[in-house]
Structure formats: structure tokens, C-alpha cells
């Protein structure tokens, strides 16, 4: 799973994705180093979520290659990429609404374990799963709603649960699609705290509309605009970039 030292965690080479005539992602080349804190910003419809979908394998790119830890995964399915250490959250929360919070997390814990095929032994008798799930619930302040159905907990808790699910499988690359969207101010603060405490060995790719959050969280920033990379570099380089200033940070484009 882990590549040799110096190998990027994720590499996109000239990746494009077309929807009919629309180039949602257009010739994107991008490198994410192991343990990186990397933000992807850009206006609505810039292609950020599409880029995530390509990385996680939701659909294949129209052209280009995707490499994880030096391995070409362009043709792999989402679950196969998950097995190689890719995890993600979704812009619109995706949970298992009728299952309890603990079952949501247990499922995520079992996802990459051979024991997910165990049929005739209750899940609750697998101590290590229970322990890990319990720790995640504690970490994401969900222990108090442990037995509630996921659809009944607050929106903020659902967002945290979404991240907890992604982390349950010990990913090497975590894709977070606007984890703060729709949260109240205290909830945002809490979520930011959680993100900052993430295991530093996990590479995190974060889509975020809030510039403050993006630039304080990430050391590296990629700006997408109409599917193309407008700028890519350290946060200082990007914030100083003329084009970005004009097209984006300057406010000529709505964010």
C-alpha cells in the first residue's frame, strides 16, 4: 500500500472528463504528496467534485492517467481504489440513514477487512471492530448519539459522521468535499478542529469555498476554473497569483 519514499501519494496526468460537449475537467495534472494538506478551490461548476469523482473512481476519466503510490489505477473501480487507501466524503452527505450511528461506523470499519463476509457470527461480537468504532465516535463527538438512526441526528453530526466513515478504513488519501458546507459557526469551528487533528500521515485533499479555511488548512492550493488548473502551488504563491487575484479572489467570479 505504501509507495517507496519520494513517490507521490496521488498523481493525475492530463486528466479530462467530458459530459457531452462540456469539459467538466480539462487536462488537469496534479500531484499530492504523502501526508500533504492540499486544498482545491474554484467557483461553482469549476469541476472540483468531478475531479474527486475521477480520483475515487466513481467514473473513469475521458482521457489521462491516475496513479496512486506509483500504481496506475485509471481502470480500477471505487472499491478497489478504496482498498488502495482512497477514502472520501461527499458534498451532499452520504450516510446509511436507517442504520444506527454505530452501525454506520462499524460498516465502514469492516469495509476493508476480510471478515466483512462473516455470515453466522454477530458483528457485535467482533471486539476490535467495536473498539475502533467506539474510538471514532469519541473522536468525532458522536458517542452521545451512538444508537440513534443516522437520519435523526443533527446536520452537523451527520457531517462529522461522514468524515468518520471515511477515516474508518485507515486511508492514505482522504478526499473531503466541502465538509463545512451548511454548518453553523460553532459547528464549523468544531469541524476545523477535527480536520486539524487528522493523522499527519494521511494526505488530505480538501475542497473548500471558504478561503480562510482553505488557506489556513492547506499548505498547497490548486485553483480550478472551468475545468482547467488556473494556478497550483504553495498558498503564498497562489494567493499572490495575478490570474487568481483577477478571476477569483478579486470577486469577479462568485464563490
Amino acid at each position: 500500500m505504501s509507495g517507496s519514499p519520494g513517490t507521490p501519494c496521488l498523481q493525475l496526468e492530463r486528466v479530462s472528463r467530458h459530459f457531452g460537449g462540456l469539459k467538466a475537467v480539462d487536462d488537469v495534472t496534479l500531484t499530492v504528496e504523502p501526508g500533504a494538506r492540499h486544498a482545491v478551490i474554484g467557483p461553482n461548476g469549476a469541476g472540483k467534485t468531478t475531479l474527486f469523482n475521477i480520483i475515487s473512481g466513481e467514473f473513469p476519466p475521458s482521457s489521462g492517467a491516475i496513479t496512486l503510490d506509483g500504481r496506475n489505477v485509471t481502470k480500477l473501480k471505487p472499491h478497489q481504489r478504496a482498498a488502495l487507501g482512497v477514502a472520501r466524503t461527499f458534498q451532499i452527505t452520504r450516510l446509511f440513514p436507517e442504520l444506527s450511528v454505530i452501525d454506520n461506523v462499524l460498516l465502514a470499519c469492516a469495509a476493508l477487512d476480510r471478515r466483512k463476509f462473516t455470515m453466522f457470527r454477530p458483528l457485535s461480537s467482533h471486539g476490535d471492530f467495536m473498539e475502533r468504532a467506539g474510538r471514532l465516535l469519541d473522536q468525532f463527538e458522536l458517542s452521545n448519539v451512538r444508537d440513534e438512526r443516522a437520519r435523526h441526528i443533527s446536520y452537523g453530526a451527520q457531517r462529522r459522521l461522514d468524515v468518520a466513515l471515511a477515516l474508518a478504513g485507515h486511508p492514505r488519501l482522504l478526499l473531503l468535499d466541502e465538509p463545512m458546507a451548511g454548518l453553523s459557526t460553532p459547528e464549523r469551528v468544531a469541524m476545523r478542529g477535527l480536520l486539524e487533528q487528522l493523522d499527519p500521515s494521511i494526505a488530505v485533499l480538501l475542497i473548500e469555498h471558504d478561503m480562510d479555511v482553505a488557506f489556513s488548512f492547506a499548505a498547497r492550493v490548486t485553483v480550478l476554473h472551468q475545468g482547467k488548473v488556473l494556478a497550483d502551488g504553495s498558498r503564498d504563491e497562489v494567493s499572490a497569483n495575478e490570474l487568481v487575484q483577477q478571476a477569483y479572489l478579486g470577486g469577479s467570479v462568485n464563490s
Binding site: 473501480k77 471505487p78 472499491h79 436507517e98 462499524l106 469495509a111 463476509f117 455470515m119 454477530p122
Partner: peptide
Amino acid sequence: MVLVKSPFGLTLQGIREHEPRMRSLGFNT
């Protein structure tokens, strides 16, 4: 009854609840 409470049984309910999410977690649904 044991089956539906087993890890495998839970994965079935996961498919019912949200199959794409199951895939991105690493299940071959």
C-alpha cells in the same frame, strides 16, 4: 437472525441504504 446481525448482514443493509457510499468505502457491492 444471526445472518442479518453479522458483518455480512450489515453490508446488505448498507447496500439497501446507500450503495454508492458502500462502494466508496471499499465494498464490492
